[in-house]
Design a protein around this nucleic acid. Structure first.
Length: 580
RNA sequence: GGGGUCGUAGUUCAGUCGGUUAGAACGCCGGCCUGUCACGCCGGAGGUCGCGGGUUCGAGCCCCGUCGGCCCCGCCA
């Protein structure tokens, strides 16, 4: 069965009799000559209904009835157009189908917005009528690319002897990490399943089970607020292997990216550069640096002490970014950046212009010597602008990383034809949380510390490095993973350091600790964000453009109006009473 | 939880200082038209100014609240 798609018609098809099925994009009516732009999944092709080229009165009458989005079958012959009639804007523009039969398969109301690639309809409306939005070739194309990517992924892992295993969607709440989506149990009133934040524990148990090489295209759920690159339910390429080390994972993933990115016409060069977490923070202030442009952070703590500006002298660290040619920034623009810096937690933003005026927000604290010292430390050129933040290291990193990105975007310093992959390695195992005055697992509590740091686990947890890694593309985290703990005693010490008591650990994942007592192989893995991959590969602005039925920033599905109220009877069966 | 921004015809928008009957383009409906592809021409219909309250002689416009879209911070092991 060969299906001819309208968008695929070319000169090669001239002379063929074809049947096209699709939707009416546009009708141009000249009386007894009518042009129909027919759209299907493959694109758009012009159909001619012409009394002078064999169309019966009935066929013309049928064509006259057509309106936008009517579903129609056209039977006819492919002709090459006369030169003057060719349309260079359409891939199918050299040909047209002269219709012999026009069958209206279904009628359609006028759609609420124009179904065309450069639609300017509000996203709210497009989400409400998602099935119409998906008719737009650009959006449909994103789904096609996503599908091809997943097929290539399955073939890749299958070829390497990986087994695709489905893990439960109804599972158990995890102690740390994101907020869980909960599902009430009817059989066990008052108890709840949780939707998986990731199949983490299950894939480790697959390793204990001896599957050795596991992968899954896994749906994950996290009840946190959304961003343009974050949806509450999302898909991961989830991988776990036994008897391997970090290098195996790096090579495995680089091989996968070499397979899938070319599907979007993007060349991938391997191996990817690597950077330790410490270097990423020092140079970029963030653990997922966008290395497509410069403006790296500069540590000027020492030079800053040559000024008479007290906050510089008192600060734990003073760092800056240098904006090339930024001395021309207006006062208003710098004020806006200062506002941003304050919103991000900085006590202030100091600016210094390296031009003839030597303007600065701390001019009166800068004698010539201090000015020169700062300029030397910053490696600033004439007409550059330095944006300086002083204070606690984590805040300084965070603020400057944000400003760097914002200025780069505004100044259009980011090349859009670069694909900078990067492995970030040597993450700290723990992260100190000021609010609760305790350590958290930066990755997750099953991540192995580096063996040589085992002894620090109890004495100096903050100094312990993890066998964890992230893969970053253009400043977006594509995924991350680690080599796991596979020894019960190490896992217990890990929980202890996190302030999880032995009883607590046993109650929450005793089954994992138990499993490790029966011969757990050394293992590790990684998980990649499918939606983010598809977003980057399709050069989309938002995750919503690569998810068939996405949710809004407030986690609603506007099309089916979820979430929604449920019947009192349903709640009653679950033993649930609502607080009002 | 916090900040920003937007909400007017089916759609995208304009709407001056608070003042007559809220406009434009596209779309839609009817008619004419044989080479259009942003078809053209003629005619027509179409409004809970997101919602609720307030100020005022008078509110699309001002104030308060609220709902919704988008972006950011917090959050996202």
């Amino acid at each position: 069965m060969t299906r001819v798609f309208a968008g695929s018609l070319r000169k090669d098809h001239v002379g063929q009799t074809v049947t096209l099925n699709g939707w009416v994009q546009k009708r141009r009516d000249f009386g007894e000559l009518i042009f129909i732009d027919l759209r299907d999944r493959g694109g758009i092709c012009q159909v001619v209904v012409d009394r002078e080229r064999g169309a019966s009165a009935d066929v013309v009458a049928a064509a006259k009835e057509l309106r936008g989005e009517f579903v129609v079958r056209i039977e006819g012959e492919v002709f090459e157009r006369a030169d003057a009639q060719k349309n260079a804007k359409l891939p199918t523009g050299d040909v047209e189908v002269v219709a012999k039969v026009v069958t209206i398969l279904n009628r359609a109301d006028t759609p609420p917005f124009a179904i065309e690639d450069d639609t300017d309809a509000a996203e709210e409306l497009r989400l409400q009528y998602r099935y119409l939005d998906l008719r737009r070739p650009s959006l449909a194309g994103n789904l096609v690319l996503r599908s091809k990517m997943l097929t290539a992924t399955r073939n890749y892992f299958d070829g390497l002897g990986f087994i695709e295993v489905e893990t439960p969607i109804l599972t158990k709440s995890t102690p740390e990490g994101a907020r869980d989506y909960l599902v009430p149990s009817r059989v066990h009133k008052g108890e709840f399943y949780a939707l998986p934040q990731s199949p983490q524990i299950f894939k480790q148990l697959c390793m204990v089970a001896g599957l050795e090489r596991y992968f899954q295209i896994a749906r994950c759920f996290r009840d946190e607020d959304l961003r343009r690159d974050r949806q509450p339910e999302f898909t991961q390429i989830d991988v776990e292997c036994s008897f391997i080390d970090e290098e195996f994972i790096y090579a495995l993933m680089e091989g996968l990216f070499e397979k899938i990115f070319p599907l979007a016409g993007i060349a991938v060069t391997t191996p990817f550069p690597r950077m330790t977490w410490q270097e990423a923070m020092d140079r970029f202030g963030i653990d997922r640096p966008d290395t497509r442009f410069g403006m790296e952070l500069v540590d000027i703590t020492d030079a800053a002490k040559t000024t008479s500006f007290e906050p510089f002298k008192a600060a734990a660290t003073v760092r800056a970014i240098v904006v090339p040619g930024g001395a021309s920034f207006s006062r208003k623009r710098i004020d806006e950046l200062t506002e941003d810096a304050k919103k991000l937690g900085a006590s202030g933003l100091v600016w210094i212009k390296f031009d003839a005026q030597r303007g600065s927000s701390i001019k009166k604290f800068l004698d010539d010597a201090a000015f020169d010292a700062l300029r030397a430390a910053l490696h600033a050129n004439e007409n550059d602008l330095a944006l300086v933040v002083a204070g606690k290291q984590t805040v300084v990193w965070d603020v400057l990383a944000n400003l760097r990105l914002r200025v780069a975007r505004d100044e259009k310093l980011i090349p859009d034809d670069r694909w900078d992959f990067l492995w970030v390695t040597d993450f700290p195992l723990y992260e100190w949380d000021d609010e609760s005055q305790r350590f958290f697992a930066r990755h997750h509590p099953f991540t192995s510390p580096r063996p040589e740091h085992l002894e620090l686990l109890d004495s100096d947890p903050g100094a312990v490095l993890a066998r964890a890694y992230d893969v970053v593309l253009n400043g977006i985290e594509l995924g991350g993973g680690s080599i796991r703990i596979n020894q019960p005693d190490v896992q217990q010490r890990m929980f202890q350091a996190l302030g999880i008591s032995a009883e607590d650990a046993q109650a929450r994942f005793g089954f994992l600790i138990d499993a490790f007592r029966y011969g757990a192989p050394p293992h590790g893995g990684i998980a990649l964000g499918v939606d983010r991959l598809a977003m980057l590969m399709s050069r989309s602005e938002s995750l919503r453009d690569v998810i068939a039925f996405p949710k809004t920033a407030r986690a609603q599905d506007l099309m089916c109006a979820a979430p929604s109220d449920v019947d009192a009877k349903q709640l009653d069966e679950l033993g649930i009473a609502l607080k009002r």
